[in-house]
Design a protein around this nucleic acid. Structure first.
Lengths: 240, 240
DNA sequence: GTCTATATAATGATAGAC
DNA sequence: GTCTATCATTATATAGAC
């Protein structure tokens, strides 16, 4: 499973070793010694090159950001988080270390992770704006929030890599699973999930003020899909 | 920000302190000493009660699972992850520690986290099945995958708590933001994002075999929304 | 049950030889 | 640039007094 360590400088080999271990086990669960061992050098050499464990992490952050923004990579390619993610996910096994590290950056609350996320949201917002202007996407009642939600949803394969894999009977996120996600995702983004506008109408009415009048033989709370029920219709309390 | 430590047994106070610190900083970044200090006891007492740091973690896991499944809580309430999440998110500030810990359980790849996720997926699948049968939701081309995706999307506020907050100009995930997410989420689940079925049709055709015929003046890859482009139409390579 | 004191191991980091 | 040897600190965990 280890990369056959190509022809890199020692410094780069150490950085890659750190990146892989930080990504797999987290920053504080990874010791400088473990990184050194994986890179095939002494622990002292790691310190010699980077000064401190924290500085090594910073260099990993910077390296991943460079990879995502594509400062090196083949020049023609798109150069944002979502397109890089798509490219990496298409060859999950090859890029697992980078994907894992990226996921930790975004969840661990580092500055670099925050910048990546904000950039992703901004680009998503612009993209949606353009598509709406072109008549290809619907406009939302809250474009900024919608952009945030869509951006966040796109990160799900990254954040839940192993869970998605296991829940679908595979050891991890395999290329086959990534491909299999495409259609259902597009279905969701094309038709939604609900057959009718009942739930949306009820929520709109509830937020507008009154408990909603258009409700028929309400089947009770569907019990499912998270982020529902803004505040479970106050069982007629305020206006009665 | 600390809970004024109510009238709990020492053992429970230690467990709550551990839960808060594990959730906020992660397991390996949290020392037994720090837990002891927060609980107002000696480090030795922590070991006396739980035997080891790892055992303490196990007890935290078990406690959160109990809270989620609702073994104690008010009896009438629903008792699964998604309804508990909804309840906790409605009072984010009060339940932040539990929410943070839950997020780590699910991403850290522990057994307990895996069980919670699988349970969430199963319940989501059942819910969707029932709604589809009742004519309130659309059926998917891949129900299992759709259930996994919907379940995963529901976890987003948990996993990206701080990112969502910051990207929307607030210090964290506030109750106001949680409420603000409802409508755009329902819009997405009701109408989708795309105005037309073009992208979905193209993907369906591409996956079916040929590079798709129904395509008009394709505006090029929209560059946005992750999980798109199953394999970017092979720029006529294989069939030519 | 709760503490102080301590054992033992691992950690990040430094010194200095080659 | 790279190593071995070592330091100072912190970690988990134990012993034993109260």
């Amino acid at each position: 499973m280890r990369s056959p360590s190509p022809d890199l400088t020692t410094r780069a080999r150490i950085r890659d070793a750190a990146l892989a271990l930080f990504g797999a086990n987290g920053y504080s669960a990874t010791s400088v010694r473990a990184i050194a061992e994986r890179a095939g050098v002494s622990a002292a050499l790691v310190m010699h090159h980077f000064g401190s464990k924290e500085a090594l992490r910073a260099e990993c952050d910077a390296h991943i950001v460079d990879e995502v923004i594509g400062r090196k990579e083949q020049l023609a390619t798109d150069s944002d988080l979502s397109s890089t993610m798509r490219r990496w996910l298409a060859d999950v096994d090859l890029y697992r270390a980078s994907l894992d590290y990226l996921a930790r950056m975004i969840t661990d609350g580092t500055d670099a992770g925050a910048r990546l996320f904000d950039d992703l949201v901004d680009r998503t917002a612009s993209m949606i704006d353009a598509e709406v202007a072109a008549g290809r996407m619907r406009s939302s009642s809250d474009p900024r929030m919608t952009a945030v939600i869509v951006a966040a949803h796109g990160l799900v394969p990254l954040l839940l890599e192993s869970q998605l894999g296991r829940a679908l009977g595979e050891p991890g996120l395999t290329p086959a699973l990534v491909a299999r996600m495409t259609l259902p995702t597009l279905e969701l983004y094309t038709h939604g999930l609900y057959q009718t506008t009942d739930v949306l109408d009820a929520a709109t009415a509830a937020l507008a003020g009154r408990p909603d009048t258009t409700r028929g033989p309400r089947s009770d709370k569907g019990a499912g899909d998270p982020n529902q029920d803004p505040d479970p219709p106050p069982a007629r309390a305020s206006d009665n």
